[in-house]
Design a protein around this nucleic acid. Structure first.
Ligand SMILES: [Zn+2]
Ligand SMILES: [Zn+2]
Ligand SMILES: [Zn+2]
Ligand SMILES: [Zn+2]
Lengths: 138, 138
DNA sequence: CTTGAATCTCTAGTCACTAGAGACATTACA
DNA sequence: TGTAATGTCTCTAGTGACTAGAGATTCAAG
């Protein structure tokens, strides 16, 4: 049996975050000591590791909730799981695409001025004021 | 003189967002009609366009606040402006890097199952449960 | 002058936490 | 067994950048 602090150390999830996950229904309500403190077993540790890993991969709490439901019913179809993973992948790809466009503009903008001049002549400020200086939409 | 709705149309910034920017101090308090409605002039339009553009490029409200301060003082050094732009660029690059790593893992994970099996055998769920299946840290 | 659209202020909700207060429980050591 | 340090409890509020909605007022067109 682990205290919430021990669980926190083992999973690198902060203590208030563990309580938050419980409140959100990602973790079942923990058993309590006679003094009302949470105690966890191996299953609790594994579930929290699952959540942590999925969060690290960018899944939302809601998505993780659905994934956990599936995990708890090993005989159900896993179609929903692959759907969730695929749409998460698509989201990540869309974000990368957008950020790459931003990177290009920002790199042009920040190269345009060495910071030794005066605001009135600054290419950075001029670029922000006028989108026509940009190569593309954002 | 533009109403807030006209300003919204011209800048593609939603009406409540314009009011929010005013509250945050990005926009000066607008002039009012006798009936207490906001009215804007060309300067207001330009400032809001500046904010919109900077937001599109990912700058935070706080950063934009500093940039606007500089814009209002054309005789000051623009060093801070280039610093802000450069650090924004670095942030974007860091995000891209992280997302590319995520993309690799997610693409492996979602390729690993066609969704036609059962949760108990699902590679997606197994991958989320066990980070050892991953190629790298996230 | 009436009608309908626009605008006003204010509060609360979003997401995934994080911070802090004040009270209570557990653990280690003398 | 006593005590001190650390851990844990619940609760509230704050983060960033908005978004949604209620209920009241104002504006513009016909
Ligand atoms: Zn400059
Ligand atoms: Zn642009
Ligand atoms: Zn599967
Ligand atoms: Zn992993």
């Amino acid at each position: 049996m682990y205290s919430i602090g021990e669980l926190s150390k083992r999973t690198k999830v902060k203590v208030p975050t563990i309580r938050y996950y419980e409140e959100m229904g990602l973790l079942p309500e923990a058993e309590r000591t006679s003094g009302n403190q949470r105690r966890y077993d191996k299953a609790g540790l594994e579930r929290l590791s699952f959540i942590r890993h999925a969060r690290d991969l960018g899944f939302s709490i809601e998505a993780i909730s659905s994934l956990i439901d599936l995990q708890d019913h090993p005989d159900r179809s896993c179609e929903a799981a692959t759907d969730i993973a695929t749409s998460q992948l698509e989201e990540v790809r869309a974000k990368i695409k957008r950020l790459r466009a931003l990177e290009k503009e920002l790199s042009r903008i920040s190269k345009g001025c060495n910071g030794e001049g005066v605001s009135g002549d600054c290419y950075v400020l001029a670029s922000l004021a006028d989108h026509n200086l940009c190569d593309r939409e954002h």
